[in-house]
Amino acid sequence: MVTNKKNNSSKPVIEIKEMHKWFGNFHVLKNITLKVNQGERIVICGPSGSGKSTLIRCINRLEVHQQGDIIVNDIELSGDLKNLEAIRREVGMVFQSFNLFPHLSVLENCTLAPIWVRGLPKKEAEEMAMELLTKVKIPEQALKFPGQLSGGQQQRVAIARSLCMEPKIMLFDEPTSALDPEMIKEVLDTMIELAESGMTMLVVTHEMGFAKKVADSIIFMDEGEIIEQNNPKTFFNNPENERTKLFLSQILNH
């Protein structure tokens, strides 16, 4: 189902080289090396505490790495605030707990950053927000507050909010883990649509169905290391590593 061929030739948009991170004395990320090409969809899975969320949070520097390099869109992540702002404009993020701004309406949630960070005129920002809210299928909720929406709707608003910044890369940090089962599908459908539109995506998730369907490659992490990276077919049918096999047997057999 998946071909890496067309992507392998292009230049990587994210390049992580021998990156390490510690929380105090605890070594959370060990020697991470990873390349993500334009338009590539990567799913990261692994047991809890394996560092997968920390890894994608390092990519827009919500977490600071202590060793190694992270280069996003030709800009190196460092303490330099200018670089950081430039990267954050290119990288959108969707959180497990939505993190919508509760005191602003859905529309204002979507237009705030485009207006103030990108300097878009209010009217243009609102038109774009409505367009994207239509894409995630909740234009009718635009004037409500986040607290009035269901979890699935809130997460779709969060996706639209990120897309309003017209990012080149989207990071998803367990986007469906806080949702009731009947709402997972609507969020995954939105993400699948996004993947089909050619967005570069890094997704931390346990939704293996989603991984099978859209991922170009799947990364398995354990104890802060990338244990295995493979295309979905090999990953599910023929995992190379013993720990991957064990994890898959735990997650798929119930």
Binding site: L62, M93, S97, N99, F101, L104, V117, S162
Partner: peptide, 29 residues
């Protein structure tokens, strides 16, 4: 919640923008 800052940061907002539009309105309320 910390997530509010993270969301604002991930959207590229600066400290003063975050304070003016996200932190203070909620804190004042």
């Amino acid at each position: 919640p910390k997530g509010q800052y993270e969301a604002a940061e991930s959207l590229g907002m600066t400290y003063w923008q975050t304070t003016r539009f996200i932190t203070l309105p909620q804190a004042m309320k």
